[in-house]
Nucleic acid binder design. Structure first.
Lengths: 257, 257
DNA sequence: CGTTCGATTGAGGAAGATCAATTAATGTGG
DNA sequence: CCACATTAATTGATCTTCCTCAATCGAACG
């Protein structure tokens, strides 16, 4: 099997092989929505809730693992330390996402989790959470689904980074951001980036200049816009136009292999 | 508790801020070794065991999720379908690794799992496995650690792909391969690649020509060698020399940002 | 022994990194 | 509120890495 990439690819795919894996990750569609999840958790446990502000460190790499966190509001970045000592953004988390799974295996977190915005976090002792699961299987399912989603999502990101040109990755990033915000019930037509160009570039594997150039290009093409309040406020009038731009760039310049 | 890890890893850890995250991923150091894990599973359940051969499909993307698999011998690749219809290797699995976690959240696998070599797989009904966990907490821990490890590992890969030049990624890939084989009890000084240059390049986000060139260069530098039995048999006389090469390339040409 | 597929190697080109200069935004203290 | 310093963003000009195309060679297989 294996089909010639072409304009017809969407229909070709639809016909048999199910979802053309969403590019920058798996949809955050949960079997439970966030509210239900929180309710379930509150009934079984007494989470510590705290408000965080931009720059706050939720946990740090090498810190002893013990807690899992559920992000109820705000926006978190996950930062790793790469082999040569540079920091590297390896993930973004939104409302309803869990933090800290990476620490379970080794007993230490392997990354930093840093708030990019004011938000609220629910913290659970991991063992207490697991204890509660024996009485409430739905809780365990919930955790497993969250971990599974993270695994699937990360593969999507990897795929995108590996095989897509810079232009597409940026467009895809904005699309994903808008989509995630929309799912949180926030407006997605006007997005305030909580990240600098440098951070975005770092996450997407390119330089800040490239990010800037691509965004300027997208703006020239009217796919996005900027408000008068600075270039960190991005207007995304039509999220589908972004997706279309992505598809369009892909058919004209087929990447890798 | 955990690691009996490689020399470089331990000393790095000892220094201070813990690991400059191992580049192509987290060590497969399990709290239980594979044999113990298998024993535990066999006591609690009756897994179906089957032998697979190169090319065999363990499961396919979009297929209904239901089973988790434990790889007891052999070598598996995980292949995703990228947005534009191309296939993309997003993971490699060795003895002791689990397959199929990605399917839990959505009820469908999101990738294909394909054997690259003769091997043996233990298959468990996911729900039976979870049922067994209530009586045997160690089993649940084992699963969670496996998922956690996968998450942490994928972040390492992402970091590597994002920020390292091609040369380093290839060297790192070979190092990781040798290390993984050594952990399986196989010889790591002579590795038979089960992948073509094209597959390696696909996994690492580069073309087959670039893979070939880098390997030739590594061979010229005597960091690796080829046997007379073709260029798919790679000699890695000193695995630390590979690591050193990686480090060395990094300091001379600092990547991204 | 020819066919096919994988690997190597070279030459040219393009995407994107780097360097550098300029222009916003964002503070900060007077 | 203003000069000033500071950090972020834009844009242009080069330079590097890696991709693309193409030719050749080797190994495997019928």
């Amino acid at each position: 099997m294996n089909m010639t990439a072409s304009p017809t690819f969407v229909s070709a795919l639809a016909s048999q092989r199910a979802l053309p894996t969403p590019r920058l990750g798996v949809k955050r569609s949960k079997n439970l929505d966030v509210a239900d999840m929180l309710k379930l958790l509150r009934e079984a446990l007494t989470p510590r809730r705290h408000v965080v502000h931009a720059g706050d460190v939720i946990y740090q790499a090498s810190e002893r693992f013990g807690n899992l966190h559920l992000l109820n509001a705000g926006f978190i970045k996950i930062v790793g330390l790469s082999g040569d000592g540079r920091e590297q953004v390896v993930g973004l988390k939104f409302r309803g996402d869990w933090l800290g799974f990476d620490g379970i295996a080794t007993g230490q977190y392997s990354c930093d989790a840093i708030a990019m915005d004011t938000g609220e976090i629910w913290t659970f002792r991991c063992d207490a959470l697991l204890d509660a699961c024996v009485g409430t299987p739905a809780l365990l399912t919930l955790l497993h689904e969250a971990m599974s989603r993270e695994i699937a999502h990360d593969r999507g990101v990897l795929m995108s980074v590996c095989s897509m040109p810079a232009e597409v990755r940026v467009a895809e990033f904005l699309r994903y951001l808008a989509e995630s915000l929309a799912e949180c019930g926030l407006r997605s037509d006007q997005v305030t980036l909580r990240m600098t160009r440098a951070e975005i570039g770092n996450y997407l594997g390119m330089t800040l200049e490239t990010v800037s150039r691509v965004m300027s290009k997208l703006a020239r093409a009217k796919v996005i816009g900027f408000t008068e309040k600075g270039r960190r406020n991005v207007l995304i009038p039509d999220i589908d136009a972004l997706s279309a731009f992505v598809q369009c760039s892909l058919v004209s310049k087929p990447p890798l292999q």
